[in-house]
């Protein structure tokens, strides 16, 4: 059964960039910072493409943000997604608002499945997928993972970790939880968020990049969706983690004890 899959591609700071907080703590210094697709979203795009390759259907990639988020949509299209939706919005958002926007996109697109990264690596909030499932009253499977190793033969052959049931009405998802794995079946339509060990995302080939330029991308102004765009969460201040102090060598246990008790005051 062909699947229509909606997948997200958020624009985030490249984790390899050096991130510095502005002196006044209102944000980060963006000069010289590179951006890319949220790595968890890349995993979601990869999983969507594998499901489509197996069952047919369509992969629609959505991003919410300023015009520049088009780059991340094009990146997903270059990997193989079919078309894109850019919801244009400048200014701060929080998971509550993002899930409300995705809710509207769901209404419009009526996908069989929404695949999202479990969280984005900028704010690490891990809430959008859960909120969206709640708003739609749909089943959710968070932290989708894989039973076999990423180096396994199955992965080499790009076997999907999220498996569609024979009747096409539900998905079997292996979830990563503390201390192990849980397997759940979830009826379609469903919301699935993807964890790190679900797959190894492909990278776009040059012909893929050229093809992506011709794929359709719809642009929607966020304000036109009838959603309250005011974030419920306000960021008060950002600060860098305290600098690590250099270690020191001690001669023996009594000295160690004295330092821990006297200087570090942990005993």
């Amino acid at each position: 059964m062909p699947l229509k899959i909606l997948v997200t591609a958020k624009r985030v700071e490249d984790p390899e960039s050096k991130i510095k907080v502005k002196p006044d703590g209102t944000g980060i210094v963006t000069d010289g910072v590179n951006y890319k697709m949220n790595p968890f979203d890349e995993i979601a795009v990869e999983e969507a493409l594998r499901l489509k390759e197996k069952h047919g259907g369509e992969v629609v990639v959505a991003s919410i943000g300023a015009d520049k988020s088009m780059t991340e949509i094009r990146a997903a299209l270059a990997m193989g997604a079919d078309r894109g939706i850019l919801v244009k919005h400048d200014g701060p958002l929080d998971p509550f608002v993002v899930s409300a926007i995705l809710d509207k996109l769901f209404e419009k697109e009526k996908p069989d499945l929404v695949l999202l990264g479990k969280q984005s690596i900028d704010d690490d909030q891990n809430q959008v997928g859960q909120y969206l499932a709640e708003r739609r009253g749909l089943g959710q499977a968070t932290f989708a993972s894989k039973t076999e190793s990423l180096e396994s033969e199955a992965e080499q052959k790009k076997q999907p970790g999220v498996v569609l049931a024979a009747d096409g009405k539900s998905l079997r998802v292996v979830r990563e939880v503390d201390g192990g794995l849980v397997t759940v079946d979830v009826s379609l339509p469903a919301i699935v968020t993807c964890d790190l060990r679900l797959n190894k995302p492909r990278f776009a080939s040059l012909p893929g990049i050229m093809k992506a330029k011709k794929k359709p991308v719809e642009e929607i102004v966020a304000a036109s969706l009838g959603v309250d765009l005011a974030p419920k969460v306000a960021v008060k201040k950002l600060s860098e983690p305290p600098k690590r102090q250099g270690g020191l060598k001690v001669a023996d246990v009594p000295e160690l004890y004295a330092k821990l008790k006297g200087e570090a005051k942990v005993l």
């Binding site: 094009r74 270059a78 990278f203 776009a204 040059l206 990049i209 050229m210 992506a212």
Partner: peptide, 14 residues
């Protein structure tokens, strides 16, 4: 420039 940016990102991944 935009196409080049994508190509470079892919080359790095490769």
């Amino acid at each position: 420039k935009e196409t080049l940016g994508q190509v470079l990102a892919s080359v790095r991944q490769l």
